[in-house]
Design a protein around this nucleic acid. Structure first.
Length: 381
DNA sequence: AGGAATGATTGTGG
DNA sequence: CCACAATCATTCCT
């Protein structure tokens, strides 16, 4: 509110002003004795100053209703010297104020003067903070928006969540058929987050538009007595929107965090790991130990194994990766297991060869990089 | 309860 | 991109 006075007094310091030095009350008084146009300007300026002062007084009267009278006549009032013929502050003020305001509004020089003042103000405002105007769309907020959209929080209502869940499941390598219970739980939580997000967003938007309207009305109202250009109102609105969008960004950020936590809770496969069933590990181990020389199943072999075990190809890959490294790390520990499966395959092979009555040797193990357990390659212990 | 086993992820190097 | 190594998080087992 006090920038009413700040603005007017600030203007007087401006160079390049074609007007006489209008800010100084003394000079204004001096000019009153000059020709008609100058006197008009002096008049109108005095009235503006008076209104400015009085509105300040009025504001004070409202905000300190039961203050001691010492405050009123106090010499600490910086505007006192500038008051032009006005009565002392007190009961008669509002009427006086209204009267002056009206007179000012009807003054024939008012529009011209106001436009000049607006122009000057425009320049000062631009020179003060025109530098960091209109930044391009914030990359941070774009990232947040994209993520919220991808997670189905800010996108269309239905399907978004489940699509995100399915995508996450696919990314995690889990089979899409199982764990529908966990996913429904996940979806419920996600929907909850989405609901909170939207209601908060709506609240912010409502508050923003309410506040914007309020400020615009206020400025429009004041533009009758203060040099406020429509452009300035626009700028003010833009400032308000920026502020509110920064609040929105916080909301988006915390929503993103919530989603991330939720994801890590529900969709990180490590958190809901199930051991493969016995038959599956048996199949995998059989393959591993019978291909100990080169335990790297081809893509087709992996698919075959995956089908046999009821797991995904990437799970097969994981299993072989883990198995290779753990076997290599501690061969001794796997000795027993190795022997067991060696016998198994040997027996199978023997059965097969017996049935076919042909020398159908089992896929020649142990000729490569991985150290062999203590059994002979032909299957005898 | 606590350690071993185990499936999955992450980071690194070829 | 794949294999490896280290590590994480859960499940199994004693």
């Amino acid at each position: 509110m006090d920038d009413q006075t700040r603005m007017l007094t600030g203007l007087t310091g401006l160079g390049g002003l074609s007007q006489p030095d209008v800010g100084d009350p003394d000079s204004v008084r001096k000019q009153q004795s000059l020709g008609q146009p100058q006197q008009d300007i002096g008049d109108i300026l005095q009235q503006i100053m008076a209104i400015t002062d009085e509105s300040l007084d009025e504001a004070q009267a409202r905000s300190w209703p039961e203050e001691s009278p010492a405050h009123w006549g106090g010499s600490d009032d910086p505007t006192e010297g500038g008051r032009a013929g006005g009565g002392m502050a007190g009961g008669g003020l509002p009427l006086n104020f209204q009267h002056r305001k009206h007179a000012l509004n009807c003054h024939r020089m008012k529009p011209a003067l106001f436009s000049v003042l607006c122009e000057i103000k425009e320049k000062t405002v631009l020179s003060i903070r025109g530098v960091q105007e209109e930044d391009p769309p914030d990359p941070q907020i774009m990232r947040l928006d994209n993520m919220l959209l991808a997670e189905g929080v800010s996108g269309p209502e239905k399907g978004g969540g489940s699509a995100a869940a399915a995508a996450a499941a696919a990314a995690a390598g889990g089979s899409p058929t199982d764990s529908s219970i966990e996913h429904s739980d996940y979806r419920a939580k996600l929907a909850q987050i989405r609901q909170i997000y939207h209601s908060e967003l709506e609240k912010y938007e409502q508050a923003c538009s309410e506040f914007t309207n309020h400020v615009m009305n206020l400025l429009r109202e004041q533009s009758r007595t203060r040099p406020i250009s429509p452009k300035e109102i626009e700028r003010m609105v833009a400032i308000i929107h920026r502020k509110f969008s920064s609040i929105q960004m916080q909301l988006k950020q915390s929503t993103c965090e919530a989603v991330m936590i939720l994801r890590s809770r529900f969709l990180d496969a490590r958190r809901k790991r199930r051991n493969f069933n016995k038959q599956a590990t048996e199949v995998l181990n059989e393959y591993f130990y019978s291909h100990l020389s080169n335990p790297y199943p081809s893509e087709e072999a992996k698919e075959e194994l995956a089908k046999k075990c009821g797991i995904t190809v990437s799970q097969v890959s994981n299993w072989f990766g883990n198995k290779r490294i753990r076997y290599k790390k501690n061969i001794g520990k796997f000795q027993e297991e190795a022997n067991l499966y060696a016998v198994k395959t040997a027996v199978d092979a023997a059965n097969v060869s017996a049935q076919a009555s042909q020398a159908n040797s089992p896929a020649t193990p142990n000729s490569g990089g991985y150290p062999a357990p203590c059994y002979t390659p032909d299957g005898r212990l």
